[in-house]
Design a protein around this nucleic acid. Sequence first.
DNA 1: ATACAATATGGAGACGATCTCCGGTTGTCA
DNA 2: TGACAACCGGAGATCGTCTCCATATTGTAT
Lengths: 182, 182
Amino acid sequence: MSESRALRADARRNRDAIVAAARLAFDHDEQFRFDDFAARAGVGVGTLYRHFPTREALAAAVYEGEVAALCDQARDSTRAPGENLDAFLRGFVGYMVEHAALARTLAAVVDPAIQTVGGSELEHTVADVMTRAAADGAIRDDVAPGAVMIVLHGIGSATDRPLWASESRAAVEVLISGLKKA
Amino acid sequence: MSESRALRADARRNRDAIVAAARLAFDHDEQFRFDDFAARAGVGVGTLYRHFPTREALAAAVYEGEVAALCDQARDSTRAPGENLDAFLRGFVGYMVEHAALARTLAAVVDPAIQTVGGSELEHTVADVMTRAAADGAIRDDVAPGAVMIVLHGIGSATDRPLWASESRAAVEVLISGLKKA
DNA sequence: ATACAATATGGAGACGATCTCCGGTTGTCA
DNA sequence: TGACAACCGGAGATCGTCTCCATATTGTAT
């Protein structure tokens, strides 16, 4: 999660400005064309692209903190492994639902195809927490973490369903109970 | 599913040519820009857009038949409602997995935001089959069909995961067992 | 058969978003 | 306070999407 190399002062300043602007835009669920983020942050398009090659990279940067916090919490938990998994899944989906406006973008972090920092960290955490729960006998041990990722991804990318929030919560519950030992 | 009005002979011919060309392209997992479908079918871009306003509309037309067949089969089944639901879900996901190349496009049919013929028919079928299974006591009665749609959508749009096929099958199994009465 | 109206066609080009490229600026370090 | 590397900016090239309308085809009424 640490930068590969120290950024020059102005670069860091610009990067931060872009992320801040993007977070604001996401919060308000405004949908900009990518270039606009540059204008919003008061930098040139080139600068934007240099820091964030893709929209997903930007989204990942914005949510890196939140996702990492959620993940850390799950890893450091002292709860029983099974409960911990349940809480983590509910928590993650809850976060998406509460930030409905943001979830659309968050989908990028969950997206399977994208190997962003946030993305892979999330998947690692899911794998970890599942492994622990399985070892504890709380869930089946024959379910790949990827199956869970697919469900999370489905939730994150269905934000425009009218009943998205409730359906998503229902989906996690089904997921959680489906993971339990047969 | 029937056309709203009779198409003129040449129109119907062109429409069919486009769908045929698109099916071929999807089969080979070639990814065209939308305009290319026109060239492939030997018609002008205008014609393409007149018949299919969006990429999703085209995808829906291509898979309308297959999806409808799957749906009809589930509706007409004489199996026990619970088994029928399981079979339908496994069957649908199986179809997606076997036509991995097509599933990417099929995702459009499953997509929540899109009210295509195929899309809504699928959702209706899911709802129907679930209702029957619930009435029969085979599954919980507090799960919205939308929750299932979200999972299906997740599967359909995760085709570029390296382990997509196996993860998808795992996801349906979790879904199926999660739907069972607690 | 013929003519006319309704319907459909095609593809040039407008449009809008994405991304690159490089002359100029700023920060850093000795 | 040079001097060099790192970084900036934003004009404009690129590319997919979609519209528009003069022309062509089909159906039908006589």
